[in-house]
Design a protein around this nucleic acid. Structure first.
Lengths: 216, 216
DNA sequence: ACCTGAACACCGTTCAAGT
DNA sequence: ACCTGAACACCGTTCAAGT
């Protein structure tokens, strides 16, 4: 007989702020950012909208936590002994995939980062991988920031096109010549890879450094 | 005596969509994006909010026009005979400045670009300057896009910090080590320049090409 | 500690109707 | 051609009060 356990009886299944973030990710995944309202989110938790303000001071802070969660789900490199260029390349691709994993993921992370809330982990990983190339910390951090802005901006744009396509909306490709824009979009990943490779080539040229291991 | 001119008498000082964009820029400049509501904008034009929907189908389209206007005010290079690297460098800095010229300018342009509306001119200019280095059009366009995303993302972040500072809000600097984050932020422009230089070095390494002029 | 209920001060957008 | 007036269906946030 479903009696209550030992001590006190847990009145209701109360929520932690972690639960709120998970519920927010669910809405993001299924519906996207425009539908991620405090009211919708509250409803999906079986709660009043005002209850969310016990867990987070405002929506912006909540979105920052969501951005952190998206970024924290980035794949990490299995082996750590590789060339630093491969490590940076891997980090960039992994972040790209993590952003694509949730509808409007890139936009959420972009805003959080610009606002100076959350999504810091992404930059830290890139900087750490770059540092393995023997660059000093200042260079590593700043170039990581540059690469990070590229990855997020590019992914946001790409994600927007993917979502537009899936709705059958026609969006002109990103081309200089409108005449050649009529052809099929070559493909997404190539643009992305070119950017990352350009960046790596730039770093390589800046400092010959040690080939991979050993502090110069 | 202030009589009416020849033909018909102009009843009221009616607005063009250009006037709407200019008014929007005014609000952006003085108050920022959160205050750029259809109602505020209408009021600044002495009109009802619903009147704006005669000029633009929706707010998103209006913001795209605003983004176009911001980008179109980018300084253009005085002399065209320079090295292509200098041209790209100039374009990047000029766009940076154009985005900083209006409160939340970078955010407005970032969104418009990601959404595939407006702000295309920025990419076109960069691509044209890169093409002067002898790269083929595909490479030029894609690398321009990469650089563009960096410039906008970086500027958005920078602008956010500038505005936060001017309000006395404390925002932690963008650093890996929270311990070293307590120092003063070194400075903004340097981060920006490093990114552009990295990018140029990457392009340079990819194709030795002609030094500046002449098609390879 | 966690949440309800009700309210406040807004939003973007539509649409019939006016001139 | 350009705009009004009124409405619709929402927003984020606050706050006293409940358990």
């Amino acid at each position: 007989m479903t009696v209550k356990s030992e001590r006190s009886e847990p009145r209701a299944p109360r929520r932690s702020s972690g639960d709120v973030v998970v519920a927010a990710l669910g809405i993001l995944d299924r519906q996207g950012l425009p539908d991620l309202t405090m009211r919708n989110l509250a409803e999906s938790l079986g709660v009043q909208a005002s209850a969310l303000y016990w867990h987070f001071p405002n929506k912006q802070t909540l979105l920052a936590a969501v951005a952190d969660e998206i970024v924290s789900r980035t794949r990490t490199r299995p082996v750590a002994a590789d060339d630093w260029r491969d490590a940076v390349h891997f980090d960039a691709m992994a972040l790209h995939d993590a952003l694509l994993a949730f509808k409007d993921g890139a936009e959420v992370v972009s805003s959080a980062l610009a606002l100076g809330l959350g999504a810091r982990e992404a930059g830290r990983r890139l900087a750490a991988s770059i540092e393995r190339g023997g660059f000093d910390r200042m260079i590593a951090e700043r170039s990581a920031e540059a690469l990070l802005h590229f990855v997020i901006g590019q992914t946001w744009h790409e994600q927007q096109r993917l979502q537009a396509d899936s709705l059958g909306v026609v969006v002109e490709p990103f081309a200089t010549d409108p005449a050649e824009a009529s052809g099929a979009t070559p493909e997404g990943p190539a643009v992305f890879e070119l950017g990352v490779d350009l960046f790596l080539a730039g770093l390589d040229a800046r400092e010959p450094a040690a080939p991979s291991r050993g502090a110069r």
